[in-house]
Design a protein around this nucleic acid. Sequence first.
DNA 1: AACGCGGGGTC
DNA 2: GACCCAGCGTT
Length: 356
Amino acid sequence: MTPQRTAALRRRLLAWFDAHRRDLPWRRTPDPWRIWVSEVMLQQTRVETVIPYYERFVTAFPTAAALATAPVEQALRLWAGLGYYSRVRNLKRAAEATVAERGGVVPDRAAKLAELPGVGPYISGAVASIAFNERVPAVDGNVLRVLSRVCAIETPINTLPGREEITGIAANLVPSKRPGDFNQSLMELGAAVCVPRNPDCATCPVRGQCAAFERGVVDELPRRVAKRKPRIVHAVAAVVRKRGKLLIARRAEGGLLGGLWRLPAVEATGKSAEGAFRREYGLDLALGPRVGEVRHLFTHVDLRLEVHEAKLVAPISGDVQARPKWSTLDSIAKHAVSTLDRRVLAIALNGDPVAE
DNA sequence: AACGCGGGGTC
DNA sequence: GACCCAGCGTT
């Protein structure tokens, strides 16, 4: 970023902000407490939604001390409908700490603000720059989007490297003159012009400084890594009984639920499972009726497991690692069994839960 | 590095 | 119905 481009961005963004800033309740006060409250409410929540809540809340709790000494139920009532209720619990805890340690005075530096519960990189930067004119960035979702376009950042913004890269750019961009207004100008631009879809580049004050516009790639930025939805995996588990015992096997070390005990199961559907049981467990099974199904969601796998009764038609054979063994129900309860497999066992046992 | 956390607006 | 929103804490 050349000094000229930095200067042009600062000048144009501030001038645009001066002309277009919305008249919002928390922009009518220099009170750091009120600005703090607004930032907490605005977390993942739209401006229009927040306004009425903000008015009621700061009327009830005009100072940190007022919130600190109020019952949490009252604060929660005023928050009801906003969502993310841990926000108000953290805000109350932070207010209590502020009263206890600083006589109710809000810290005036981002680094100190960030020590308070519920105050992270964004809120600490926003409060410090807006209320105290500290030259620190305040990077929210708008700023990520705007700067990823202005600087044509290819790094996905929903990854740590992406956020760090843009935070570094923002930190260099913030002027010492009006840091709070500058930070708000980036957010305001993201909310009004540089919106996620169909941004209004025709009216953008920094179109001439925008690398994405110059290269014609505005619509492709910001880049994100797709949060991929779990892969669907179909599997068959076998309930094999012999005189009050069940066949169980141990999962391979290092894999999913590695080392835990389970009913024998294979990634397959229907009759094709029999061959898989032979290969993986040395079990020559005749699959019987389906007695239930378990659906289990892991981070990366949407598991749909059919539980079938099965008969052992030949002795256990083969040189397989996952050699199953017979186990009494009492004994199974003493093994390491995952939540998933407890559910499978519950079906196998006709609803009788396996003891811990 | 990825999730849970709420509720609502948008396309 | 998917995506996104003035994010943070936890794992």
